[in-house]
C-alpha cells in the first residue's frame, strides 16, 4: 500500500475578483522509503503542493477538492488537533531559507528540545540527549557546544544541518524538502544532499524533494514529477526522464541547461515565460511556448498517457504513440 497518495488535488486561491487555481488535478503516490522530486520553474505550483501535503496552505488559499491520504487517513478532512499529530511526527518539512526557519531568539538546543517535548512526554535531560545525538547524526562537530548557541552564530550550511536534525527528532515517515540547498554554496550543497540521501536511506524515510535544479534532482530522487502552471505534465523514473524527456516542456528545461550546448554557442531557450495564475492559457497551458503546438493543444487539455518512459500529458506524444500502434498493426497484418 502507498504511504501517501494524492489524488485529483485542486488548490484554489480566493481573490477579490476571481478564484485562481494554483493546483489542478494533481495526483501522485509515494511509497515507504521512496525519494521523489517535484521539478518546475517558479510559479509552477511546486511549493503550494509541498505545503498542501501537510495542509499548511494559508489564506487566501484552500484545498478545493481532492484527497491526500496518509495510509488510510485523509489529511484534507482532519481537524487542527489531528493535523498537529501528523505534522512533524509523520510528515516533516525542510524549507529553503534556514535562517527564516530557526527562531533567532532561542538557542538551537531550546528549539530542538521544545520540538521533542511538545510531541512526547519526556524529561528535559532525555530530550537534550536525543537532540545531541541527532546533531551528531547530521555530522555537526562538537554538538554539546552548538546546543547552547544561537542560530546567528552558525553558518548557512550548519543551520541547514540543524534543521535536518530537528526534522529527524521525531522519526518521521516522510520528509518534504522545499529547495533545501538553493541558498547554499555548491560545496555545501553537495554535502547537504549527501547527508539527506544517507539519512533517508538509513532510516527508510520517504523524501519529497522540491527543486528547480535538475542536477540536484538527478543525484537524489528515484522518481520525478515535472509541473507546469499548476499541473503535472510528466512523471517517471528520474534517470529516464533526464535521458529521454517526453514532454516538450521537460525537453525545454533540460535543453536550456548550459551543459547541453557547446561552450560559446547560443543556449536553447524556451520562448516566453510561465503564465501567471490569472492568465492561464486555454487547453494545454504550455501551448504558447511550445514549438509543436497545434490547434488541438489550444483547445483541449491532454490527459495522461504512458509513453513507455514516463506518463505524459501531451497530444504530441499521444499522436506519435497512435501512429506507432497503427504501424504495428499494419506490420502484423
Amino acid at each position: 500500500m502507498n504511504l501517501l497518495s494524492v489524488s485529483n488535488l485542486n488548490v484554489n486561491f480566493h481573490m477579490k475578483e476571481q478564484e485562481l487555481a494554483a493546483l489542478i488535478d494533481v495526483s501522485f503516490t509515494l511509497n515507504r522509503g521512496e525519494r521523489i522530486a517535484i521539478v518546475g520553474e517558479s510559479g509552477a505550483g511546486k511549493s503550494v503542493l509541498g505545503f498542501s501535503i501537510v495542509n499548511l496552505i494559508g489564506k487566501p488559499g484552500y484545498i478545493a477538492s481532492g484527497s491526500i491520504k496518509l495510509e488510510n487517513k485523509d489529511i484534507t478532512q482532519m481537524n487542527l488537533r489531528q493535523l498537529q499529530e501528523i505534522r512533524g511526527k509523520r510528515i516533516a518539512m525542510i524549507f529553503q531559507d534556514p535562517m527564516m526557519t530557526l527562531n533567532p531568539v532561542l538557542t538551537i538546543g531550546d528549539q530542538l528540545v521544545e520540538t521533542i517535548r511538545s510531541h512526547t512526554k519526556i524529561s528535559y535531560k532525555d530530550a537534550r540527549n536525543i537532540a545531541i545525538e541527532k546533531l551528531h547524526n547530521v555530522q555537526i562537530a562538537s554538538p554539546e557546544k552548538r546546543f547552547d548557541q544561537y542560530p546567528h552564530e552558525l553558518s548557512g550550511g550548519m543551520r541547514q544541518r540543524v534543521i535536518i536534525a530537528s526534522v529527524l527528532l521525531l522519526n518521521p515517515d516522510i520528509i518534504i524538502a522545499d529547495e533545501p540547498t538553493t541558498a547554499l554554496d555548491v560545496t555545501i550543497q553537495a554535502e547537504i544532499l549527501q547527508l539527506l540521501l544517507a539519512i533517508c536511506r538509513d532510516n527508510g524515510v520517504a523524501l519529497v524533494l522540491i527543486s528547480h535544479d535538475l542536477g540536484v534532482v538527478s543525484k537524489v530522487a528515484e522518481r520525478t514529477i515535472v509541473m507546469y502552471a499548476g499541473r503535472v505534465v510528466e512523471e517517471g523514473p528520474t534517470l529516464e526522464i533526464i535521458n529521454d524527456p517526453q514532454h516538450p516542456y521537460t525537453q525545454g528545461l533540460l535543453n536550456a541547461l548550459p551543459q547541453m550546448t557547446l561552450p560559446g554557442q547560443r543556449l536553447n531557450q524556451i520562448q516566453g515565460s510561465m503564465p501567471s495564475l490569472a492568465e492561464r492559457p486555454s487547453g494545454c497551458a504550455f501551448h504558447p511556448r511550445c514549438p509543436y503546438a497545434t490547434e488541438r493543444c489550444r483547445q483541449e487539455q491532454p490527459s495522461f498517457i504512458y509513453s513507455g518512459v514516463s506518463s505524459v500529458a501531451c497530444f504530441l506524444v499521444e499522436d506519435m504513440l497512435n501512429e506507432f500502434a497503427e504501424q504495428d498493426k499494419e506490420v502484423n497484418e
Binding site: E41, L267, Q269, S273
Partner: peptide
C-alpha cells in the same frame, strides 16, 4: 529560472 537564464545569457 533555467529557461529564463538561457534567454538572458
Amino acid at each position: 529560472d533555467v529557461s529564463v537564464q538561457a534567454q538572458v545569457l
